[in-house]
């Protein structure tokens, strides 16, 4: 395996189908595999439905990543530090990004056999922190498609803006699509 982290495929009901080896097992019976379409480089997808950042969601996510800083949990602590409300952990935007990755993985023309996808890299570049109450829109652009050692590497950047159209954070993932076993 290239990396340990499976990319979330969207709807929970699709999770088993999306598991790498389950797909690998079924691919044995498949005669041909469509390679990743290099023409998706530069492709953008329409913005997904706006995501309203809830205070309890921030707290829930913060607990899940072992965060303890009170700025994630206590409105007063957040305000004392100059924020409008509780601040989301640095990796929280993955929750917003996920729906955009589902668009890419669900694009038949892209030819990504998502059962063979592993998460290679992840980055978050902020213009300002995400805080509870933000209404975020996200749209994904495929910034690069490369072939390397029989694998395809797809880099996709999801630009996340607030309700006024100002940039908040860009979440970039590199997905590795494994070639033939």
């Amino acid at each position: 395996m290239t990396g340990p982290s499976e990319v979330n495929k969207g709807e929970p009901g699709g999770a088993a189908r999306a598991s790498p080896g389950l797909s690998r097992a079924s691919s044995v019976r498949r005669m041909k595999r469509v390679p990743v379409n290099p023409a998706i480089q530069g492709r953008s997808y329409p913005p997904v439905d706006a995501y309203l950042v809830g205070r309890e969601k921030v707290r829930e996510f913060a607990r899940a990543v072992f965060a303890t800083n009170p700025i994630h949990f206590e409105v007063e602590a957040a305000r004392a530090a100059g924020h409008a409300d509780v601040v989301a952990p640095p990796t929280f935007p993955v929750v917003v990004q996920e729906a955009t990755l589902a668009q890419l993985l669900g694009d038949e023309d892209a030819g990504i056999d998502f059962g063979r996808v592993v998460h290679g890299d992840q980055r978050f570049e902020y213009s300002r922190p995400v805080v509870a109450g933000d209404e975020l829109t996200a749209h994904l652009t495929v910034t690069s498609v490369k072939s390397l050692g029989g694998n395809s590497m797809i880099t996709a950047s999801t630009v996340i803006d607030d309700a006024t159209g100002e940039h908040v954070v860009t979440a970039t993932s590199t997905l590795v699509v494994r070639g033939e076993d």
């Binding site: 340990p4 303890t68 800083n69 530090a81 990796t91 992840q122």
Partner: peptide
Amino acid sequence: GMLTMGIASQAVVDWVGDPARVVDYQ
């Protein structure tokens, strides 16, 4: 993987005092 990434960031958040100070993380 994103859990490991999230937990790992907490060391920096706790040191820097305010999560908003983490402006780029990969």
